[in-house]
Simulated assay, not measured.
Amino acid sequence: MTRLLAFLATLFLLVPAPAQAWWEYGHETVGAIAYRNVTPKARTAIDALLSKGRLLETPTCPVNTIELASYWPDCAKELGLRFSYAYSWHYQNVDICKPFDLKAACRDGNCVSAQVDRNLKLLKDKSVPERERLMALVFLVHFVGDLHQPLHAGDKSDLGGNRARAAYGDFVTQRLNLHAIWDGYLAERAISTPPPLVRIYSAEERAAMNGGTTEDWSRESWQVARDTVYASAYGGDPCTGPAQERSKLSNETIETLIQPLRLQVERGGLRLARLLDEALG
């Protein structure tokens, strides 16, 4: 067991920083679900835009598939000042211990839900230059995924769980926090749990999940953050209990979180499909 934990700790040092929501696997899965469930016309338009990836002039961050495109906005963070203006677009810190208030967390449109709406409008508008529509597409794919990562929608004055130290089952390290668990370790386990999430969904399934507005989705993700993410980490109401130096997600608790996380990925994928059909289909 000691050797196993040492190996896992080594792997942890090699993975991306937790600022990248869903890491690669989560974003790729949201994008792949959407791609499988859009209309043929929308899929053709998506492919046509992605084939123009050279217009972005980011050779180290390609976008020639929906999976690569879904991760481009995180990859572009590594390009320094070129895309630093977009950093605050990936999240919205809405306090889970106060009544839901999206406006206060989204001043001047610098938050993820406002950028979903903005990039949808740009993608729809065929008078917009092709390069900007391509960038709108990759931002839209990514930001819908971000919005459905609960810790990018709900916050407890801890940078969406980045400052909340946590243990994941038997995996304990000083660097591990609640955000990283939901971004990567739990996300990868949940998405990998059968049955596969990337498939063609029925009309009934799509209708049950893809309705609403970005504000509706924001409120829903905020509630998941409050009632599932933080409640499971704090062992109850996260807003009334004493502050904890470190929370622990037991193996039994982790099992109960797999389905809620899978549902968030499904919602993100099917809602993205609806938006892409609206813009391109």
Rank of each mutant, 00 (worst) to 15 (best):
Q244D: 04
I33A: 09
D170K: 11
T58Q: 08
E215G: 08
L197W: 03
Y234T: 02
D216T: 13
T39F: 02
I46Y: 00
P238Q: 02
K126T: 15
N119D: 11
R118M: 13
E67W: 00
F83E: 08
L275Y: 11
F7T: 13
E130A: 15
D158P: 07
L68D: 12
A105I: 03
A279G: 12
G212L: 07
V198P: 04
E266I: 14
L120D: 00
T39L: 04
K41V: 12
S221P: 06
K124T: 13
L102N: 01
V229R: 05
Q92P: 06
F7E: 10
I33M: 10
K124R: 15
S127V: 08
E245V: 12
S232C: 10
L280Q: 01
D227G: 07
T256M: 07
A104T: 15
S250T: 15
E24Q: 06
G211R: 13
A9N: 11
L137W: 01
K103P: 04
S221N: 06
R206Q: 14
G268V: 06
H27F: 02
L186I: 02
L140E: 03
L120N: 04
E205T: 09
A48G: 14
Y91D: 06
L81M: 14
D47Y: 02
P59H: 10
A19G: 14
A48E: 15
A76V: 05
F143D: 03
Q223S: 11
P238A: 04
Q20M: 08
E24Y: 13
R118F: 14
M135Y: 06
P40N: 04
D183P: 10
L272E: 03
S51Y: 12
L159K: 05
L81V: 12
R226G: 02
A104M: 13
G268F: 00
S232E: 07
C239S: 06
L134F: 02
L151Q: 04
Y168C: 03
